[in-house]
Design a protein around this nucleic acid. Structure first.
Length: 112
DNA sequence: TATTTGACCAAGA
DNA sequence: ATCTTGGCCAAAT
């Protein structure tokens, strides 16, 4: 499979919103959904899993509403190497993560 | 067209 | 703190 032209409208809205989140800040699945004018929190997660635009869409800046990390690269297991990579990226952007949680989570949330 | 499935959420027990 | 339950809604099957 080379190209897949499915799912343009919903995901594209999510992607363009997510691209606005600056380095050093994060957003949540819920916040993205609501900024897009919907309550499809879970569909946002699916949009990330299918994310075809790896570098331009910073999926690693999307976390859960309770401050937990969430999934990454198809993995949901917090101890997986994929999640560790996500944590590493966030740390590199200046965020502090302790025990799989964002420190001062509310303060680094990006406001749409 | 109908059912199932999530990188989710919030409230209870 | 952990587990369950019901709700949510777009995508996949």
């Amino acid at each position: 499979m080379i190209f897949n032209f499915k799912m343009q409208t919903f995901n594209q809205r999510i992607y363009s919103l997510l691209k606005k989140v600056p380095k050093g800040k994060v957003t949540t699945y819920k916040a993205l959904a609501e900024a897009a004018g919907t309550r499809a929190y879970r569909a946002v997660g699916q949009a990330m899993r299918c994310n075809p635009y790896a570098p331009v869409v910073p999926c690693h800046r999307v976390v859960k509403s309770d401050g937990n990390i969430g999934g990454f690269a198809g993995s949901i297991n917090p101890d997986s190497k994929e999640i560790k990579r996500k944590i590493g990226m966030l740390r590199k952007e200046g965020l502090e993560i302790r025990n799989k949680r964002i420190v001062d989570f509310e303060k680094v949330l990006f406001g749409f």
